[in-house]
C-alpha cells in the first residue's frame, strides 16, 4: 500500500517537472478563450510547425504578470478583447511596435493603432436590442437619447464592472467630455429597468420577460443567443431586434471595440509571433473567426457570418480606440459617482 502511494506521488511530481520544451514555438498571454482560438492555433501549427502555447486569464492579471516578469517574461504576444487593455500595456511600456507589411495590408485602416503597438483581429459593436412588440424602431436614435424621459424604467444593461460598459463609457467621455458624460450616466441610471446585473444574454432574456424594453449589449452575444441549443432561448432571441445607434448623418456612429494583439517588449520568439499575427489577420485566419464566432473580421476582404451580415452594415465611431484605455479611470469614477452599480 505504502509503496503504491509513494510511487504514485513520485510519478505525479515528476510529471510536473517534465514540460516538453520545443524551440519552434510562440507564447501567448491571452484574455480570449473561445473554442475558435484553439482551432486557429491548431491550424497555424499544422501550417507552419510552430507550436502555440497559451496562458488564459483576466487581462489585468496578465498585464501584472508581464510587468513583473520584465526581461525574463516568456510571453511573445498579449491577446485581449479590449483595446483599452492594449493601451494600458503599451502605456506601461510592456509592448513593442509591430512592423509587418503583411499585417498592415491585411487589416482595415479604421481599426489600426495609430502608435503601432497592437493590431486588431476582430471587432464587435456595443449595440441596442429592443422588444419588437413594445418599441418601434423609429423611436430609437442614439446612445445619448437613451436618457430621454420616454425610456423611464425601460433600459437594461449589465454592471459597470464589466469591461464592455467601461469601454462604452470611455468612448462617451472621449466624444462628449466629462460633464456631458456625467449627465448621461445620471439620466441612464434613472431610466434603468432594474439594478445592473447578469450577462449580456440575460439582458435580452429580460426583454423577452417584459422586465425592460431596450438593452445595451455586444453584437456577439445576440449571435450566440440566436444559435442556442435551447428552443426557449431562441425564442428570446427572436423577441428582440438589433439597432445600431448614432447612425444619423451628423452622428459619429456606433461604439465598437476590437479584440487585438500586442507584441511583448521582450518577446523571445518575435519572428514566430509576427508569423502568427500575419496568419490570424490573413484571409484564411479571418474566415475561421467568422465561421466559428459572431465577431466582425478585422480584414475588410472577409465578410462576417450570415447572422451578423443580416443585421446590415453600419457606421463605426471613428474614435481612436486607445482612448478607451485612456479614459477608463475617469469612466469608472463617473459610474461610481452617478450610481451605475
Amino acid at each position: 500500500m505504502k509503496k503504491i502511494f509513494y510511487s504514485i506521488l513520485t510519478c505525479l511530481l515528476i510529471s510536473c517537472g517534465s514540460e516538453k520544451k520545443s524551440n519552434n514555438e510562440v507564447n501567448l498571454y491571452s484574455q480570449r478563450h473561445y473554442s475558435v482560438d484553439k482551432l486557429q492555433y491548431e491550424n497555424f501549427e499544422k501550417l507552419t510547425g510552430i507550436k502555440v502555447n497559451v496562458i488564459k486569464a483576466n487581462a489585468d492579471e496578465l498585464i501584472e504578470r508581464l510587468k513583473n516578469e520584465g526581461e525574463n517574461s516568456p510571453a511573445d504576444l498579449f491577446v485581449t478583447v479590449d483595446a483599452g487593455k492594449l493601451y494600458k500595456a503599451a502605456d506601461m511600456g510592456l509592448l513593442q511596435k509591430i512592423s509587418s507589411n503583411v499585417i498592415n495590408s491585411n487589416v482595415s485602416e479604421k481599426l489600426k493603432d495609430v502608435n503601432g503597438f497592437w493590431i486588431p483581429i476582430t471587432y464587435r459593436a456595443r449595440i441596442l436590442v429592443y422588444s419588437n412588440e413594445r418599441v418601434s424602431e423609429d423611436d430609437l436614435s442614439t446612445y445619448e437619447d437613451l436618457t430621454n424621459e420616454k425610456w423611464r424604467g425601460k433600459i437594461l444593461v449589465r454592471s459597470s464592472s464589466n469591461a464592455y460598459n467601461q469601454a462604452l463609457m470611455s468612448s462617451i467621455v472621449a466624444n462628449n467630455g466629462a460633464e456631458k458624460s456625467i449627465e448621461w450616466s445620471k439620466g441612464l441610471v434613472q431610466n434603468f429597468a432594474r439594478d445592473p446585473k447578469g450577462s449580456d444574454r440575460d439582458q435580452v432574456k429580460a426583454i423577452a420577460a417584459g422586465q425592460g424594453d431596450i438593452a445595451i449589449v455586444n453584437s456577439y452575444y445576440i449571435g450566440l443567443l440566436l444559435n442556442s441549443e435551447k428552443e426557449e432561448e431562441l425564442n428570446a432571441g427572436k423577441a428582440v431586434k438589433v439597432f445600431f445607434p448614432n447612425q444619423g448623418e451628423n452622428q459619429r456612429g456606433s461604439h465598437i471595440n476590437i479584440s487585438g494583439i500586442g507584441l511583448a517588449k521582450n518577446s523571445p520568439n518575435k519572428e514566430n509571433a509576427i508569423k502568427l499575427m500575419e496568419y490570424l489577420t490573413s484571409k484564411a485566419g479571418q474566415e475561421t473567426y467568422v465561421n466559428n464566432s459572431y465577431e466582425y473580421p478585422a480584414n475588410p476582404n472577409v465578410s462576417p457570418s450570415e447572422i451578423v451580415k443580416s443585421w446590415g452594415e453600419f457606421k463605426i465611431d471613428p474614435l481612436d480606440l486607445n482612448m478607451l484605455g485612456q479614459f477608463r479611470e475617469q469612466a469608472i469614477r463617473i459610474f461610481d459617482e452617478t450610481g451605475w452599480k
Binding site: 483576466n58 454592471s159 467601461q166 446585473k197 447578469g198
Partner: peptide
C-alpha cells in the same frame, strides 16, 4: 459579480482591475 451584488471583494478587484 453575475448577480450584480457588489461585495467587499468586488471592491478589491475594482480598485485593481478597473481603477488600475
Amino acid at each position: 459579480k453575475y448577480f450584480g451584488v457588489n461585495t467587499y471583494t468586488s471592491g478589491i478587484f475594482r480598485a485593481w482591475f478597473s481603477m488600475n
